[in-house]
Design a protein around this nucleic acid. Structure first.
Length: 563
RNA sequence: UGGGGCGUCGUCAAGCGGUAAGACACAGGAAUUUGGAUCCUGCAUUCGGAGGUUCGAAUCCUCCCGCCCCAGCCA
C-alpha cells in the first residue's frame, strides 16, 4: 500500500476524479454539490454526503454548492430549508455565496423542455397515470408506445405551453421524453419530464403549475451550476443513462458526471425520511430535533460534536457495498472527541445522603479541582465540601459482591479531589427498606488525596456538598430502536421501539459550577458518562442535562457476568 | 425469470498479479485520585463457491450462488 495522507482519504470516487483530471476532461476546478430536497431535517446519512461532497471540493481546491432540490412542492418548506442551512453550517462547511434552488431554474428548465420538443424528442402525453403505468410494461415485458407519442412538434409546443398556462387539470397530461419503450431499463421508457400540480410552492407560490421531475431537473441543474462530479446514492444508478441522455440532447461538453456511492445505514436506527416523519407526526418523539432522533439537530441537542460526526464520516469510508454500520462506531467517535473536550465535573444522578460524623457542623472548605486532570492547562474551579454530602446511590452496597470496590460498611474510599472516608454505619427507611443515609468518618490527614501512612484505597468516588449542590433534571437517552435490522413496512418499525429509550431523573444534584453551564460545553460527570445542557429546552424551568453517550463500564460487564 | 449494481474478519474497509493494512467490536493483561482515558497482547493460512490461466491469483478468465436497486405524474 502506498502512503496516503489521512486527511485526504482515497476512494473509488477520487480515483474517477483523478482519471478525469489526467485525461483532461475537466475544464476548470472540481465542482460538487450537496442537493437535499427540503422535505425533512437532515440526518446522519446526509452528513456522509455532505462530508463527501465538501471534502472532495476542499481536497481538489474546488467548490461545493448547497442546492435545494425543490422540484416537488408537496412536503417541501422553508422550515426544512432553514434546518438544512443550519445543520450544514454546524457541521463546519461553507458554501460561501453558492446557495442555490432548483426552483430558481424553473424558467431555464422550461426552455430546455421546449428545445427538446422542437428536436422531436419530447411529447405531451394524455394517458392517465394508470394507463401510463400499464403502457410502461413490467420488468420482464417491454412497454408499449403511447398513442400520443407521434404528435407534431407544433401540437406538442402548443399543448405544453397550455399546460404551463394552467388550462388542464392535475394528472391530465404530462410531458415525456421520447426515448425507448422497449428498453430493458425501465427508467428509459419515455420518462416523464413534467407533471401538472396546481399546488402552492413554498418559494414560487402559484407562479407555476407544472413542475419538472427529478431526472430532468437534476442533470440540468448540475450543468447550469458547472458541476463536474455529481455524487449521489446507489439507487440512482439506473437513472444515470437518463442523466446522460438529457445532457447529450441538450448541452455542450464538458458535462457533469454522475457517480454513485452506498448510502449510510446505521444499526439500531432508521434513516428514511418517511419513517422519521412518522415518528414526528405520531408524537413518538418530541420533534425532528428530539435527542433520540438520528437527525443532526437531534444529535446536536444530545451533545454530539460536529467534529465527532465528521470523524465518523471519514472512518466509515466510501464504497458501493450495501452496508450497515455499527452504532458503536459512531459512539466511539463521539467519546473519542469528548474525551479531550469534556470538562470533568462532579455530579450525582441518584443521590444518597452521607453525613461525615467527625466533620465540624457548619464548616465549609473550598477544594480547587482541575477541569481536566490530565491537562494542566485545562483550568480549575472551586468546589465546596461540607459535613453533608450526596454520593451516587450505586456507589454504596450494604453487602458488596466480590468485585465491588466502592463504599460498604467498614470500607474506606477516597472522595474525588478530597478526603478518605470510611463508612461507619447506615440507616434504612423503615417503610421501603431502602438505605436512606450513611454515616462516615473522614481522615483529616488525607486532604491531599493520599494517606501519610501510605495505605491505599480501592476506589475513588464522586460527591457533591448537599447544601451547595444545584438540583437538576437529567435525561438518559438510549437507542430509540432495539434491533439493527432494516425495518420496512409502514408502522411495522414501531414494535421495535425501545420503551426505555428515555429515562428522566428528576432528583439529580450537580456541583455549583454547573448552574451556569453553556449548552455548547460538554461535561463528563466522571464515571457517569458525557452530558450537555439541553439548548432545545429553553422553556424548561429546571436545568436539564442530556446524556450524550455512556462511558465504557467495566463494572457493569463484571456484574453482568456474575448473574 | 429483463436490466443495473455489490460480494475481503462479528461490523465497516484497504488491496488493482508477488504471497491479507487499519478502525470499531470482542478477549486477556499492565498502570491509574473516574471500574473512564491510556498502554501492551490476541483476533481472516484466507478473500461468496467451483473450475481455469500463471512460477505465483483476493486481484485475470469461465460458470455458479447470494444480496441490493428499478415497473411514483417521489427524490
Amino acid at each position: 500500500m502506498t502512503e496516503t495522507d489521512p486527511s485526504h482519504p482515497s476512494d473509488f470516487i477520487r480515483d474517477i476524479i483523478d482519471d478525469d483530471m489526467k485525461a483532461g476532461r475537466l475544464r476548470g476546478p472540481v465542482a460538487t454539490r450537496f442537493p437535499p430536497e427540503p422535505n425533512g431535517y437532515p440526518h446522519i446519512g446526509h452528513a456522509k454526503s455532505i462530508c463527501l461532497n465538501f471534502g472532495i471540493a476542499e481536497q481538489y481546491g474546488g467548490t461545493c454548492n448547497l442546492r435545494m432540490d425543490d422540484t416537488d412542492p408537496s412536503g417541501e418548506s422553508m422550515e426544512y430549508v432553514k434546518s438544512i442551512i443550519r445543520d450544514v453550517k454546524w457541521l463546519g462547511f461553507d458554501w460561501q455565496d453558492r446557495l442555490f434552488y432548483a426552483s430558481d431554474y424553473y424558467e431555464k428548465l422550461y426552455r430546455y423542455a421546449l428545445a427538446l420538443i422542437r428536436k422531436g424528442k419530447a411529447y405531451v402525453c394524455d394517458l392517465s397515470p394508470d394507463e401510463i403505468r400499464q403502457y410502461r410494461g413490467t420488468l420482464n415485458e417491454p412497454g408499449r408506445e403511447s398513442p400520443y407519442r407521434n404528435r407534431t412538434v407544433e401540437e406538442n409546443l402548443d399543448l405544453f405551453e397550455r399546460m404551463r398556462a394552467g388550462e388542464f387539470p392535475d394528472g391530465s397530461r404530462v410531458l415525456r421524453a421520447k426515448i425507448d419503450m422497449g428498453s430493458p431499463n425501465v427508467t428509459m421508457r419515455d420518462p416523464i419530464m413534467y407533471r401538472i400540480k396546481k399546488e402552492n410552492h413554498y418559494r414560487t407560490g402559484d407562479a407555476w403549475c407544472i413542475y419538472p421531475m427529478y431526472d430532468f431537473a437534476h442533470c440540468l441543474s448540475d450543468y447550469i451550476e458547472g458541476i463536474t462530479h455529481s455524487i449521489c446514492t446507489l439507487e440512482f444508478e439506473n437513472n444515470r443513462p437518463l442523466y446522460d441522455w438529457f445532457l447529450d440532447e441538450l448541452v455542450e461538453r464538458p458535462r457533469p458526471r454522475q457517480i454513485e456511492f452506498a448510502r449510510l445505514n446505521l444499526s439500531y436506527t432508521v434513516m428514511s425520511k418517511r419513517k422519521l416523519l412518522e415518528l414526528v407526526e405520531t408524537g413518538v418523539v418530541g420533534g425532528w430535533d428530539d435527542p433520540q432522533m438520528p437527525t443532526l439537530s437531534g444529535m446536536r441537542r444530545r451533545g454530539f460534536t460536529p467534529e465527532a460526526i465528521r470523524k465518523f464520516c471519514e472512518k466509515i469510508g466510501v464504497s458501493k457495498n450495501d452496508s450497515l454500520i455499527d452504532m458503536a462506531l459512531l459512539e466511539d467517535c463521539v467519546r473519542d472527541d469528548l474525551n479531550e473536550k469534556a470538562l470533568r465535573v462532579l455530579a450525582v444522578l441518584r443521590p444518597l445522603r452521607v453525613v461525615i460524623d467527625n466533620y465540624p457542623e457548619g464548616q465549609v472548605e473550598m477544594f480547587d479541582c482541575p477541569y481536566h486532570p490530565k491537562n494542566p492547562d485545562g483550568g480549575s474551579r472551586k468546589v465546596p465540601f461540607s459535613r453533608n454530602l450526596f454520593i451516587e446511590r450505586e456507589d454504596f452496597m450494604e453487602e458488596p459482591p466480590k468485585k465491588f470496590f466502592r463504599l460498604s460498611p467498614g470500607r474506606e474510599v477516597r472522595l474525588r479531589y478530597g478526603y478518605f472516608i470510611r463508612c461507619v454505619g447506615f440507616e434504612k427507611n423503615p417503610a421501603t427498606g431502602e438505605v436512606a443515609e450513611i454515616h462516615c468518618t473522614y481522615d483529616p490527614q488525607t486532604r491531599s488525596g493520599f494517606a501519610p501512612d501510605g495505605r491505599k484505597v480501592d476506589a475513588t468516588i464522586h460527591w457533591v456538598s448537599a447544601p451547595h449542590a444545584v438540583p437538576a433534571e437529567v435525561r438518559l437517552y438510549d437507542r430509540l430502536f432495539r434491533v439493527p435490522d432494516a425495518l420496512s413496512e409502514p408502522g411495522e418499525f414501531k414494535e421495535y421501539l425501545n420503551p426505555k429509550s428515555l429515562e428522566v431523573l428528576r432528583d439529580c444534584r450537580l456541583e455549583p459550577s454547573l448552574a451556569t453551564a453553556a449548552s455548547e460545553q460538554r461535561f463528563q460527570f466522571e464515571r457517569l458518562g458525557y452530558f450537555c445542557r439541553d439548548a432545545g429546552n429553553a422553556t424548561e424551568k429546571a436545568i436539564v442535562f442530556n446524556r450524550t453517550v455512556t462511558l465504557r463500564d467495566t463494572w457493569a460487564k463484571i456484574a453482568g457476568k456474575g448473574r
